[in-house]
Amino acid sequence: MIWVTWRQHRAQILLTAAFLAALGLLLLGSAIEATLYVSGHAAPGCPGSAPACAPLEVALGERYDAIYSIFGWMPLVLPALIGAFWGAPLLGREYERGTHRLAWTQAVPVWRWLAVKLAVLGGVVVAGGLLLSLMVSLWRPVFRAGIESSFGNVGVFNMVGVAPAAWWLYAFALGTLAGTVLRRTMPAMALVVAGVAVTMFTLFALSEHYATPERVVLSDTTVLADPDARLVGATWVDPSGREIDSPGAEVCPRRVDAGRSNRNTEAWEKCLFGKGYGYAVSYHPPTMFWRFQWTEAGILLLASGVMGGLAVRRTLRRTA
């Protein structure tokens, strides 16, 4: 049965492997180039926070952005592709071509046929996702020493840790179920793409509830010190400690900024802080990284299990 699984799905497996290999080479090349650049151009003590290091940081940032623009779309597109080309045809194409009547009338019981396929392909999908995460995690620190964004930036967050593996598996299970229900490949593929997109935005909206946010009252700025935090909400607090929607004009007059200038807003904020107002920010700190990773992975794994179970049940119910 493993040979059958390999023979039927080798195109997807080889294509995914080739993609990961190409991406790995690209990341490796870019990391080597950046390392050489740093060793050739870095002033003593750089990279670091010294002002002399700024040009180096800009050059590294440009290199990072060039590659990031290539894989910035990957958190959304890769799961969609996995679902469409690994999941949807798994049962959808068998039904579409009538070959399920060939496969399921051999001596191998249907449950074994399905179990081997789901286990082998699901395992390879998870391994592929983890490999992607590993490559990205090894590559990023070369450019981003000291500038962390793997928590605050959802795109990066979904490319590191266990998130890619969980997303790939989820998309695979969704595609398998769609193929079983619709019994045709193309509509199942379309459903997967839509389903992955909807799930991603839903989970992003839900993610602020993964933990109780921390709250801090700032008394001299409206910007959090940690740029990698995830902002949940912010509000002004009057001198007595009450949260208010917006301080009235009678407290501090506010004038509209012209163009891209922040001058008037900053003056208004300074006036408020001077009168004892505070700015309360609730946020998730980057230390929540693994809690968020495992919460999201848990939700996705549970959903994959349910969808996989439904696909199995529908298949074994035998309604040819």
Binding site: M1, W3, V4, R7, Q8, R97, G98, T99, R101, L102, A103, T105, Q106, A107, V108, W113
Partner: peptide, 23 residues
């Protein structure tokens, strides 16, 4: 089955391997 379903991308030899592996 009707329409004699086979895996069209398989070679004839691979179809035989399919049968051998599933029986």
């Amino acid at each position: 089955a009707q329409d004699k379903p086979l895996y069209e991308t398989f070679t004839v030899a691979e179809m035989l391997t399919f049968g051998r592996r599933t029986n």
